[in-house]
Each structure stands twice: as C-alpha cells, then as structure tokens.
Simulated assay, not measured.
Amino acid sequence: MGQKQHYVPKSYLRNFLNNESGNFVVYDKLSNSKRLGKANNQIAAEDDFYKANPSIFSIEVDDNVIEKFFSEHADSRPSKFPEYCADLGNGRISIERFKELCVVYIYFQFVRVPQELPKERRSEESKIDHIRYMFNRNRIERFTRRALSAKWVILKGSNEFPIFTSDNPVIPFYNNEEGASFDLNTFMNKTYDIGSDAFSFNFIFPITKDYIIYIYDSEERDTFSSNGSVINLDEALYRKLAMAIANSGVRILIFPSDESFTTAYHYLDFELLSQIKMH
C-alpha cells in the first residue's frame, strides 16, 4: 500500500465543509450516487500519485520530492482563502494583492489534476509527462503573467445559488450562451499551452463554499463594471457556472450540504435524482 497523495488538497476541501456537521456531500458522477464525506484521504487522492523515479530530475532528489513541494509551498494556502475573501470585501487588501496571494496556487491546482481516471489507465511515461508539464518554468511564468493582468471578479453565492466544487476545480470558462468549458485532456494536449497568448484566458475557481473567482481577459469583454468587485450571483450566471463546474469534475462533485445539493440540482442536467441515496 502506497502513501495517499492528493491532487486536490485537504486544505482546499475543508473550505466546503458544512460548519454544523463537519461533513460535505460527495456526488459520484460515474455511479450516480451521493454520500457524506470529509476532507480525508478518500477524496481526490491516490496512492503514490506524485511518486516519481528520481532519474527524471537533473539533481539528486528522493522519489517524494513533488509531494513535499506541494506540502511546503502550496497546500497550506487554501486555509487562508476565506480570510482573503473577507479582507478583499472589507477593503483591507486590494485586488492586486489578492491576485498575488492566489495565483500560484491556482496554477498548480489547474495542472495537477490527473489526465485520466482510473489510475490503471496511466502509464509511467504519461506520469512523467504530467510532472514535466506542471513544472515547466516558461509555462508557469506565462500563466502567472496573464492571470495577474486579467480581470478578477469575486462572485458571492447564497442559499438560493449555492457554491460547490469538484475534483477538478480550476475550470476554463466562457461566458457565452452555453457556458462551455474544457476537460483536462484538452488542456494537457500540447496544442493547448496554458498562458499562451494564442488562447483566451478565462477561468472560474470555486475558492470557498461562499465565493467563486472569475478570471477573464479584460480585452475580450467587460462583463463586470470593475476589477476586483464582489458581486452577488444571479440566476442566469449561476446556471452557467454550475453547469461548468459539474461538467468539469473528473469523477466527483462536492457540496457543503444536502440542501445545497438539492438546490443546485435544479440548475444541473442530472438524471434519476429520486434514485440517489445517502450511504
């Protein structure tokens, strides 16, 4: 048995726990079932997910160097997200500071989700390609540059429009009639180089159970009146966001409560809701 390693860290998942029960609702897209869950090693994790042959590196390292990198430099950040959102809303930090605090985590969360599930379908070669893709310095710099120059708007959910997330939470999103999004295999394709000036730069990221970050090219559209606004979601935009989140989940969706699942369901294209049982 290997070591459980998360591609969506527990620190992020905890932002979607129900404050009263300490659980969240996990909806499995493949089995069309839901269950109560916690931010533990059973959610968005695999045995030895980052474990790699040290020979792929140019310096001598141990085979868990990537897991250690994320533990030390990225995975503590999501625990601060509720504080960042509150500080932005209260004017204690600027949107530019908010971007700086979040952008590196958003990049790595976007690229670390596995290309394919289940694990058995992935070869050692594809795993190495994934590692090299994640840590390509030029790609990181291009993504960061474009993200920092883009517009960021914070969208606030409510009981009527509940925020939920998935095991693939950073989502390419286009605010058109369909609210279309890519799946992971699209952006892992070498023809889609994230951060490249050849592609639009539009993403959503449910950052907590109360807020979604919407990042978009200001040159393409002026969807909202100001950069850094905190805006209450309306039904039209929520419907698009909810479908994008649901479609982009690799296997699971995560809701803060059964009530939020039921409410969000009305905006989603799920079938057989009456047959879904808690277990």
Rank of each mutant, 00 (worst) to 15 (best):
68 K>Q: 13
112 R>A: 00
88 L>P: 00
139 R>F: 10
85 C>R: 06
33 S>R: 12
85 C>K: 07
78 P>Q: 13
42 Q>K: 11
86 A>G: 02
50 Y>A: 12
112 R>E: 00
115 Q>M: 12
50 Y>D: 06
44 A>W: 03
42 Q>Y: 04
129 D>L: 15
94 S>N: 06
126 S>Q: 09
88 L>D: 08
95 I>W: 01
93 I>W: 07
100 E>C: 13
70 F>G: 03
121 R>W: 14
139 R>Q: 11
66 I>Y: 09
45 A>E: 10
69 F>I: 06
111 V>F: 07
96 E>K: 09
81 F>R: 02
131 I>M: 13
139 R>Y: 11
78 P>Y: 14
87 D>G: 06
135 F>P: 08
82 P>H: 13
126 S>D: 14
110 F>Q: 13
131 I>A: 08
72 E>K: 09
104 V>P: 02
109 Q>I: 06
139 R>G: 12
121 R>Y: 11
75 D>V: 06
76 S>V: 12
45 A>Q: 05
117 L>I: 05
90 N>S: 10
31 S>E: 13
78 P>E: 14
95 I>P: 11
30 L>K: 14
107 Y>D: 04
92 R>M: 03
70 F>H: 07
107 Y>C: 05
91 G>N: 01
40 N>W: 00
129 D>F: 14
135 F>C: 08
104 V>E: 15
75 D>I: 06
75 D>S: 03
